[in-house]
């Protein structure tokens, strides 16, 4: 690990100003991914700006009936929050499906969104990776990728985003509040994360120095019945092979509205928009769910060894939607 300077910020403006003063600064939240990456040599900041002391550790109800979640709220607190459990159970479930109790006690909301891929090549600095070392190549494309992307990958990157929480937030249409050198702005999810294209080194649309300060969940009454289902290679404490966040609004046997997002299938939390469009107005039946899922997966481009994720994800989606009936 390269030596770095540590500074603790007390407000967002101060954090941004401190960040800007160093050529390779990074913000430090719970550190559960950043410290991990620094120890691997994947990240080597010269300055860490600790933002856990910023006054963003509250979950508050918004006037519009939604929730505003401070970026420094710990994952475990958010999962246990009564309002989240009541109004957005999918979010609580997603958080609890991720990591371990110990990690959730450290990890923050902002940091969770900015987690980096667990692609094995990305994490090994002795090997090429376009995300870590632009232009060096992507060995995963032809190599080991049985747990990598089936949607939206590019010639330069086939990684997946590892977060569970972000999948639920993408389904809920969360809005990310950002402070930065250019002033505050809001980014709607799933628009925070980006597909790899030719620049997989950029996971998100954030500009250097921009700091997530809050995530706002818009009111979505039917999300009070929502679910997160995660499939992984052991019973617990593993990253997703496929995960599904879903909420379903049914009236008189017809789907009025729905939200479905997938984890473990793309460089971003994958909002299944084709599925949602297909399902809106359709009878709320297993058959409709299958048709809608098939519509979504028509655009999947599985790699040599991960085509199993297509039937797997389809089955999970259909199963979750049926449970929400």
């Amino acid at each position: 690990m390269r030596p770095f300077v540590y500074r603790r910020a007390t407000d967002a403006q101060g954090a941004v100003a401190t960040f800007e003063a160093a050529p390779h600064a990074m913000y430090l939240g719970g550190g559960t991914n950043l410290v991990d990456l620094m120890r691997l040599g994947v990240a080597s900041p010269d300055l860490l700006v600790d933002v856990t002391g910023l006054p963003y550790d509250q979950v508050e109800e918004t006037p519009g009936g939604g929730l505003r979640i401070g970026a420094a709220v710990r994952n475990s607190d958010l999962a246990a929050d009564a309002a989240v459990r009541r109004s957005y159970p999918v979010l609580s479930q997603a958080l609890l499906a991720g990591a371990s109790g110990q990690l959730r006690n450290l990890a923050t909301v902002g940091g969770n969104l900015l987690q980096r891929t667990r692609c094995p090549y990305f994490q090994d600095v002795s090997k090429p990776c376009n995300k870590r070392d632009p232009g060096s190549g992507c060995p995963a494309r032809e190599g080991e990728h049985h747990n990598l992307a089936i949607f939206g990958h590019s010639a330069s990157c086939v990684a997946t985003h590892p977060s569970d929480m972000a999948v639920a937030m993408a389904a809920l249409g969360a809005v990310v509040h950002v402070e930065g050198p250019g002033g505050p702005r809001r980014i709607g999810m799933p628009g925070l994360h980006r597909l790899p294209g030719d620049t997989p080194e950029r996971d998100t649309v954030l500009e250097p120095g921009e700091l997530i300060v809050a995530v706002e969940l818009p009111a979505l009454p039917y999300a009070a019945r929502s679910r997160y289902r995660k499939v992984r290679e052991r019973a617990s404490f593993a990253f997703a092979v496929v995960a599904v966040a879903a909420a379903l609004d049914v009236a008189d046997g017809v789907v009025r509205d729905c939200r479905v997002a997938l984890g473990g299938v793309a460089h971003v939390p994958w909002r299944a928009e084709l599925l949602e469009t297909t399902l809106r107005g359709a009878p709320a039946t297993r058959e409709s769910f299958v048709v809608a899922a098939e519509a979504e997966f028509a655009q999947a481009r599985p790699l040599r060894d991960n085509a199993y994720k297509v039937p797997l994800a389809r089955n999970v989606i259909v199963g979750v939607l049926e449970e929400l009936l």
């Binding site: 667990r118 094995p120 090549y121 994490q123 080991e144 290679e233 052991r234 019973a235 404490f237 990253f239």
Partner: peptide, 16 residues
Amino acid sequence: YLNHDFAQYHVPTIAD
């Protein structure tokens, strides 16, 4: 060996 850590080489947890 590519998957050289406990996040990638899975051993049983207590939940298994």
